[in-house]
Nucleic acid binder design. Structure first.
Length: 489
RNA sequence: CGGGGCGUGGCGCAGCUGGUAGCGCGCUUGCUUUGGGAGCAAGAGGUCCCCGGUUCGAAUCCGGGCGCCCCGACCA
């Protein structure tokens, strides 16, 4: 157990740290108290608990459907990668070298060649497809795998950066540059759709600067989400690899003109980190706030009964049963735990972010009604007891809209335009924001910008900019891009 | 990898001018409660991170390990 983790004594021992008091501690409190995950015995590793894993499975399903719909097939490559494979693409090795974990022994015997535990799978995938791709008729190759990844991180945080994490990595090979570039865009848009339509997280799509791109890529696209403290989270990346790897790994095909060519390649990934984004994007002082479409439990029914009131109790039981059986596709749970008072049940499910709560008690039932409470904004009202189950899909949609609207508002309120470095400094002196700044793409200017205030980074070069960017905030030369400057997780 | 902090029942901590371990929460059982984290009663649970040293005696003092957390440079 983490021993330096000390909770300040507070009025209510059972409450989590307030978000405004200490955001980082609030985050850890939520993850652990909502039973999403816990620290494992090995440094930087975590156990994803059933509730957290159920959330991941929901996200997985939504994304997997999109991946299949766009024509990809799942397959699986091995965890262990020979060192020599990793070394074929120079920039790639260099980029990943500091964080690769190595297997050096099999049983008692030392291996002749060290094996890397995959930090990503481009190398092994290329080495296999070098054997399978011969003709333009073999292209495009559109594959994906769901896998675990190990990267030896110096500093870890539950979900956001763990030594081992889960993700999907898509890998594709194409005849032409244009086709591959379309693929990079298409998959980034899937990530955008996942974030916005499923997770209620508005994101800014764009291109990474050369300093921030994937090791070995020609360019990297990413979606950046804003957490409720104004910090940025890279939530998904899509890389155009050009022919960098296919050349290095000797993948070639005979094209339509009977000439030998190297295919153009892409890769794209989204990891369990996104769960951290959901937590930090929507959570509040009571705990998690889950987007309804991925919430493992979408509605919870809390019965409230009084002892010495057998008729009332029977009516409550009966109503709970009816709601339960009429819930249909809605993921609904009745909290029948005995000996726990309603107040504690409320707190329990609020901490876990369940979007809707239905309180079934004798008081409301006297008029044939139940009370519904919406997690995201705490609003509460009554519904007819015998109609509430049928209304749930609609109520969940409303909860979805409100969750999304609130996140949109945060992003809007915390986005600023900066024309000068002084603007930039002033903005960040107040609070963390997304600052849109004109940028000329020169490395020196990037350093000037990120050095303007503490811990600034260029998140993405916006792809949705309109009009001419103006003059570079750092050097005053004509700018080619609008950069989003923010502090990032 | 640099700086700091901390290792004591499941969790959070106290005990650290050496004398054989305590509090809160949680857990178990029973009764009473139940519309915002319940009350009473009884109970279970500890190689005080590890190794060595000092001492009649070490959770406490000394040395050495290991681990974890937090803050900075690198990263999905």
């Amino acid at each position: 157990m983490p021993t330096g983790y000390t909770r300040r004594p507070m009025a209510d021992e059972k409450a989590i740290t307030r978000k405004s008091e200490d955001f980082d501690r609030w985050y850890t409190d939520v993850v652990r108290r909502a039973e999403l995950a816990d620290y494992a015995p090995v440094r930087g590793c975590m156990v994803i608990r059933p509730y957290g894993y159920a959330l991941w499975e929901r996200i997985q399903r939504a994304l997997d459907d999109m991946i299949k719909r766009t024509g990809h097939e799942n397959m699986y490559f091995p965890l262990l990668i020979p060192e020599s494979f990793l070394q074929k693409e120079a920039e790639h090795v260099e980029g990943f070298a500091p964080e690769v974990a190595w297997v050096t022994h099999g049983g008692q015997r030392e291996l002749e060649e060290r094996l890397a535990i995959r930090p990503t799978s481009e190398t092994i995938i290329c080495s296999m497809f070098a054997e399978w791709i011969h003709s333009y008729r073999d292209l495009p190759v559109l594959i994906n795998q769901w896998a675990n990844i190990v990267r030896w991180e110096k500093r870890t945080r539950l979900f956001l950066r763990t030594t081992e994490f889960l993700w999907q990595e898509g890998h594709t090979f194409h005849e032409t540059r244009a086709e591959a570039e379309e693929e990079v865009d298409r998959m980034l848009d899937c990530y955008r759709e996942l974030a916005e339509e499923w997770l209620c997280l508005p994101v800014i799509p764009g291109r990474k600067t050369d300093a921030e791109k994937f090791a070995g890529a020609e360019y990297t696209l990413a979606i950046e989400a804003m957490m409720s403290d104004g910090w940025a989270l890279q939530a998904g990346t899509s890389h155009f690899l050009g022919q960098n790897f296919t050349r290095a790994y000797g993948i070639s095909f005979t094209d339509r003109d009977n000439a030998q060519q190297h295919p153009y390649q892409t890769s794209w990934g989204l990891s369990t980190r996104i769960i951290g984004g959901v937590i930090m994007g929507h959570g509040d002082d009571a705990g998690l706030v889950l987007p309804p479409r991925v919430a493992p439990v979408q509605a919870v029914v809390v019965p409230v009964v009084r002892s010495g009131d057998p008729e009332g109790t029977a009516a409550v039981d009966e109503t709970c049963r009816r709601i339960e059986s009429a819930a249909g596709e809605v993921r609904l749970r009745v909290d029948r735990r005995d000996g726990i008072r309603p107040g504690e049940k409320y707190a329990h499910w609020e901490l876990r972010g369940v979007p809707l709560r239905i309180t079934v008690g004798a008081r409301d039932l006297a008029t044939g009604r139940v009370t519904v409470t919406r997690r995201v904004d705490g609003e509460s009202w009554t519904e007819p007891a015998d109609g509430v189950a049928a209304r749930l899909p609609e109520l969940l949609e409303e909860a979805h809209r409100r969750t999304r609207a609130r996140a949109d508002r945060t992003l809007g309120e915390r986005s600023v335009e900066a024309r000068t470095l002084d603007d930039l400094r002033r903005a960040f002196a107040e609070r963390p924001v997304f600052a849109n700044v004109p940028f000329c793409e020169r490395r020196a200017c990037e350093e000037t910008i990120t050095g303007a205030a503490h811990a600034l980074t260029i998140r993405v070069l916006r792809r949705d900019r309109s009009g001419e960017p103006g003059r570079c905030i750092a050097c005053g030369e004509p700018a080619s891009e609008v950069a989003v400057v923010a502090r990032a997780y």
